[in-house]
């Protein structure tokens, strides 16, 4: 079903229709919250809070951006505010140094039967900002513009961070594979 139609239904008073949006986006919202807050209970609480905030301000959603971009932006900001309040150690995206280095980081080298498992494990090792960028760009197919809206990064900064995050992910996967081969 068309997402904009569902949003319109919710606006018209069909509260039940909102459950479609919750089911559709709960995994990404929760996984971002969990990465930032590092605690399942807090992550569930803030994921819920993000959905409620989205529901409350659905009338202000104009449809210029994708609903997912808008929702992830709410999630990201809600979780960062909560992390700051609770003093959860969080590395702000803007505070990281940036650099371009070319090297071979092809993901095709990993054996197909294990690569999803390596990837899941490697993602868990990534810092929260790298994880968020990777999930948004590669899993959720958000554009660089969308990512800039969600995270507040500039376009060039988002590109550089994404490049670095991908390299870190590749390195983590290589390390995991190397460890497994040795053992």
């Amino acid at each position: 079903m068309d997402e904009l139609k569902i949003i319109e239904m919710v606006r018209q008073g069909n509260t039940n229709a909102f459950s479609y949006l919750v089911n559709q986006y709960q995994d990404v919202v929760f996984s971002i919250a969990l990465k930032v807050l590092k605690n399942r209970d807090d992550a569930e609480e803030m994921a819920q809070e993000s959905f409620i905030k989205a529901y409350r301000s659905l009338s202000s959603f104009q449809g210029k951006a994708k609903f997912s971009t808008w929702l992830y932006s709410i999630t990201y900001n809600t979780c960062i505010s909560h992390a700051r309040k609770k003093k959860v150690p969080y590395t702000q995206i803007d505070s990281l140094p940036v650099s371009y280095e070319e090297s071979d980081d092809s993901f095709g080298d990993f054996p197909e039967e294990n690569r999803a498992r390596y990837l899941e494990m490697a993602l868990k090792q990534l810092p929260e900002e790298d994880y968020t960028l990777i999930v948004l760009y590669y899993y959720e197919d958000q554009s660089i513009d969308d990512i800039c809206q969600i995270t507040g990064l500039t376009e060039s900064n988002a590109k550089v961070r994404l490049f670095r995050a991908r390299k870190k992910l590749h390195a983590a996967m290589m390390e995991l594979m190397g460890k497994e081969i040795i053992s």
């Binding site: 709960q26 995994d27 996984s31 969990l34 992550a43 990837l119 899941e120 999930v135 590669y138 899993y139």
Partner: peptide, 13 residues
């Protein structure tokens, strides 16, 4: 990487 990411499962609530 995009292709690989489609194979993974994210953390679920």
């Amino acid at each position: 990487l995009r292709k690989m990411m489609k194979e993974i499962r994210l953390e679920k609530p």
